[in-house]
Amino acid sequence: MTENNLFGYKISKPRSISMDSADLSLAHEILDKIPTFRLCISCGGCTSACTAGNFTDFNIRRVNLMLRRGQLETLSKELKDCMFCGKCYLACPHGVNTRNVILMMKELLYEWEQNIDRRTEKL
């Protein structure tokens, strides 16, 4: 992504996710609390079954991966779409407790966003 600054220069954001500096604290908290979350092999069964996916671009598999790569900015917006119907849980071949992952993600992301707001307020 590029955007023009005041002087007409283009500042380009990094093209790759730095796994060295990514914030994985949220991911680790969930991985620790819900051990089955570690079992995901990204088969996509969950997203394929997803009821909210009938209407939106909500992709729980991708959300889970983004979390594990520390890419948190867009996640809470995506998670708002989840209907919590439980089809993903039934589709998952590895027994990931998807619904608890979603619940916990929503709670932790909410907290994380509040902290960001507080930080920006201080600035």
Partner: peptide, 18 residues
């Protein structure tokens, strides 16, 4: 992974996957 298969009106099988 295919999550489900359904039958369409023309008798085909419609599969869903990601």
């Amino acid at each position: 992974r295919i999550s489900e298969a359904a039958m369409t009106v023309d008798g085909k099988i419609r599969v869903k996957a990601e």
